[in-house]
Amino acid sequence: MLVAPQIIITLVFFMWPASQAVYQSLLIEDAFGGNTAFVWFDNFKELFEDDHYIKTVGRTFFYSAMVAMLSLSVSLVLAAMADRVIKGTGIYRTLLIWPYAVAPVVAGALWVFLFYPTTGIVSTFLTSIGYEWNHQLKGDQAMALVVVAAAWKQISYNFLFFLAGMQAIPKSLIEAASIDAASPFKRFWTIIFPLITPTTFFLLVVNIVYAFFETFGIIHVVTKGGPANATEILVYKVYNDGFVGLDLGGSAAQSVILMVLVIGMTIFQFKFIERKVEY
């Protein structure tokens, strides 16, 4: 059977762990794995009563929104420009595509190097013009740094999609608009931007999912969730509580919540894509 490989792998590495997670989320286990007790939804209750967890949720949303906004706006501007120039679009694309290939951890390392408090190129520059930079101590600066690093990596992807979206707009439409004497700027906002709304929306979801789940490496290397949890997002907390804190039940409960979240977002996205396909 052709589907056998996928079924087996899916069962062993997806279904089993997922059910395991659900099961575990209902247990309390002490750190040495000796005693377990079945506690129903206590783990979840505990989580939602935990100030710390609620804060992490809020922080994660803030972080994702920032990453998405920063990355989308920069790439939108660049794509708009690249769409306008007649020569060199390909070259710009080649140059802007690089960050996509860079691993999150590596991206994190690069940005740490630039902003390393004592020797970083940017940080020393900032300090020299009077802005004290130390993301190892200041929470908001740490957050800014991870946002920038995460957004940087995502620029390529967004740029490619925006550009493809813009180039798919029939030339005649733009020409019609220029006959109507709209200035390039106005043309962008009244014609191009509305027409790429589906792309923008798609990218928004993709970016948020990306920030949620795929930036673990960046955070791990740049701040380790610190200082004082200032950059701890949900995925990081799952890892931290499970592998470092060894609170298996709590970590599993968090996993389950994350799964529900992802499923929600994916369904949302698919609904949207289906609708888009219709017209």
Binding site: F13, W16, A18, Q20, V238, G242
Partner: peptide
């Protein structure tokens, strides 16, 4: 369904399975 569950999310149980 598997489409929706990146490894990061089910990391711990998967670890145990492996």
């Amino acid at each position: 369904i598997t489409l929706m569950l990146p490894v990061e999310v089910r990391i711990l149980p998967t670890y145990e399975v492996v």
